[in-house]
């Protein structure tokens, strides 16, 4: 009996893990040229929308001491910044073609994206 309970709960737990971590709905945001991202256990917001061809200011503030989050990378835009704790860091970008530009932490464990429209 206990084996059946363990089996069923394990299957349920696996389903929950899938839903919790991988079943996130993408939140859409309005186009903006002045964006603030809080870096703590990930990026808030995780998805930002920017206009194509216009200069955009992205300000990041890291409030989480986890070392993984210390570096911020947007590989397709060749941007890498070190984020000192509790200190705003501003990045100026101008994206020339529409699309999705992923960003992540130095060890590629926390992810987010820039949608250029």
């Amino acid at each position: 009996m206990d084996k059946a309970i363990v089996l069923v709960s394990s299957l349920g737990l696996i389903g929950f893990i899938y839903w919790f971590f991988l079943g996130k709905r993408e939140k859409t945001s309005e186009i903006s040229t002045d964006i603030k991202i809080t870096v703590s256990g990930g990026y808030s917001p995780e998805s930002i929308t920017i206009p194509v061809g216009k200069p955009v200011k992205i300000t990041l503030i890291r409030t989480d001491p986890t070392d993984c989050l210390e570096e911020f990378v947007i590989p397709d835009l060749k941007i890498k910044k070190t984020l000192p704790l509790n200190t705003p860091v501003t990045i100026a970008v101008t994206v020339t073609s529409p699309g999705r530009y992923g960003f992540h932490c130095g060890m590629n464990m926390y992810h987010g994206q820039i949608i250029a429209r």
């Binding site: 990930g42 990026y43 995780e46 001491p65 986890t66 993984c68 926390y110």
Partner: peptide, 19 residues
């Protein structure tokens, strides 16, 4: 303790890391 803090911060974002 730092591992717990980092885990809690991540879970708030429905994310997970090595910690």
């Amino acid at each position: 303790w730092d591992f717990y803090r980092s885990t809690w911060n991540s879970l708030k974002h429905r994310a997970a890391n090595m910690d």
